[in-house]
């Protein structure tokens, strides 16, 4: 009787990821901002205004930074807002009573962030190459895509920390408060070299800044800090976010959130 009969693991992981993807794709409040905003921003600032305005290099620079922006969105929102809302709705608690491995749930969100991020990056690359005349070596296109997509690691970890510590609708607001200012202060919209020195210093503690610098290195447009520095900061920060998330979950007791003391028990 105790023979550990189990459902095939790979199937749980695959279905969990597929349905996570479908679920998010059908949610306009998520799909539109994360898929369309980076593309529209790039089209406007990179292609239309960038071509010929303040610098001929602008469309190329923005190709890298808006791609980072495009990967950051689904990572942060999938984990931050998505997790908090699924916790509030009780579905997370329900799933925790089933044999579903917790990792399947988390990896499904990472897979969703990669899929959405890849779609945005592809769109930006097409706009850049065909709309703004960005010319890169073939290896640069691939390297850029790879580096930018690796951003799901720090961004998902950050999103998880936000999701672990916030509830429902507040999580959407908090995610936005992390997402938009960080994008700007990290130089994802316009180069931070335009900012006052004090603001430029802030960028050094932001994961999006380091992620963008790694991407810009590939096209030789970074600020000159070492790869090791960027990778170290991102690695340490990712671990720190995961620790913060783990602490948050422990405090909330995985999903026991729906039991309110003295309330409807």
């Amino acid at each position: 009787m105790t023979a550990p009969k189990q459902a095939p693991r790979w199937r749980i992981y695959a279905l969990e990821a597929w349905y996570q993807f479908l679920m998010v794709l059908r949610e306009p409040a998520f799909a539109i901002p994360t898929l369309l905003f980076p593309l529209i921003f790039y089209l406007f600032f990179g292609v239309v205004m960038g071509a010929g305005s303040f610098s001929a290099a602008a469309p190329t620079y923005m190709l890298a930074t808006y791609s980072v922006f495009g990967v950051m969105g689904p990572s942060l929102f999938g984990f931050g807002a998505g997790l908090a809302m699924e916790r509030d709705s009780g579905v997370l608690l329900l799933k925790r009573t089933t044999p579903m491995p917790a990792a399947a749930y988390l990896l499904a969100k990472v897979a969703m962030a990669i899929a959405f991020g890849a779609a945005v990056v592809l769109g930006i690359f097409l706009l850049g190459a065909h709309g703004a005349g960005v010319v890169l070596y073939r290896w640069q296109w691939f390297a850029l895509a790879g580096v930018v997509l690796a951003g799901v690691i720090p961004f998902c970890a950050l999103g998880l920390a936000v999701g672990a510590w916030s509830r429902g609708r507040a999580a959407v607001a908090i995610t936005n408060l992390v997402f938009l200012p960080m994008a700007m202060l990290s130089g994802l919209w316009i180069p931070i070299t335009i900012f006052p020195a004090a603001l430029q210093d802030i960028a050094n503690v932001l994961p999006a800044y380091h992620q963008a610098q790694l991407a810009l290195k590939i096209i030789d447009m970074d600020g000159g800090q070492t790869t090791l520095l960027h990778v170290s900061v991102l690695g340490v920060q990712s671990l720190a976010y995961l620790a913060v998330a783990a602490f948050g979950f422990r405090r909330a007791g995985t999903g026991a959130v729906s039991i309110h003391p003295g309330g409807t028990s």
Partner: peptide
């Protein structure tokens, strides 16, 4: 082994609207 042989319907629980 317990999880696989048990089912639950929780009081405050829904599943995502879009599926």
């Amino acid at each position: 082994g317990v999880r696989a042989r048990r089912g639950a319907m929780l009081q405050i629980s829904g599943v995502p609207d879009t599926l």
